[in-house]
């Protein structure tokens, strides 16, 4: 059987549209490095269901592949890298804010 690639649960915030990640304490964070890394497929599906049960806060929840590391999970694909940063033509989106990312207020 192929090995399961570690995942995070990610979505967009309903109000701001911003990229958010599910943390281990059930809060939503705007910072990928604070997201809960899920190494088990069954748990990943459970956590995705947890996210999808919050339609008043999040939109379009899905599982994204990550590479666990010392600095927290890193995106496995360039699309997720852009999502955690913002566009490349302006310093907009997440890269715009310099303050440390805390729990999302969603």
């Amino acid at each position: 059987m192929p090995r399961f690639t570690p995942k995070v649960v990610t979505a967009n915030a309903l109000i701001e549209g911003d990229v958010i990640y599910l943390a281990a304490d059930d809060s939503w964070t705007r910072d990928l490095s604070r997201a809960e890394v899920i190494a088990d497929e069954a748990i990943a599906q459970m956590r995705l269901l947890d996210a999808q049960r919050q339609p008043g806060r999040v939109v379009g929840a899905y599982l994204a592949d990550v590479i666990p590391g010392a600095q927290g999970p890193q995106p496995a694909h360039f699309r997720e890298d852009f999502r955690r940063k913002g566009p490349s033509n302006y310093l907009h989106g997440k890269q715009e804010t310099t303050k440390p990312e805390g729990a999302a207020n969603v």
Partner: peptide, 28 residues
């Protein structure tokens, strides 16, 4: 109604698209 939870995203999406509102990578 979407914000107060009366509409789900599945219900709201066709309504917002009829009014030009998309949800993209980083924002609406």
């Amino acid at each position: 109604r979407r914000i107060d939870g009366s509409l789900t995203e599945d219900e709201f999406k066709p309504l917002r698209l009829m009014n030009g509102l998309y949800l993209q990578l980083h924002a609406y």
